[in-house]
Amino acid sequence: MFARLPDAAHLRDVVDIIVDGTAVVARAGDTVAAALLAAGFERCRTSPVGGAPRAPFCMMGVCFDCLVTIDGIGSQQACLVAIAPGMRIDTQRGARAIDGAAA
């Protein structure tokens, strides 16, 4: 459970993003990971190895636990990507799908 410090919650910096189809309020300058945590998302993916839920761990781009799909592009490190208005973020379930599944 995370929350924004009152000191940092400047209303004028609000940015609207969409997470798993739901409208979420974030702050300009947030990384996707920070926005997810501040909005109360406990997990951002399930592991493709064993299905366990994972969430951001290191916040600096070296653990790769914060992988999410951003605007349709999968396996992005949420802690390295800054949010933008209207950004569509989807949590990942297992191994990411690629288009055109073959036989």
């Binding site: 410090l5 940092a8 920070a34 945590l37 501040a38 969430a55 761990f57 290191c58 916040m59 600096m60």
Partner: peptide
């Protein structure tokens, strides 16, 4: 989920003003 590095928590604080 719910477990992070202290460094990660510090980054959250510094860059987003987000705390547990």
């Amino acid at each position: 989920p719910g477990v992070m590095t202290a460094g990660g928590a510090q980054i959250l604080l510094k860059t987003a003003g987000v705390v547990p």
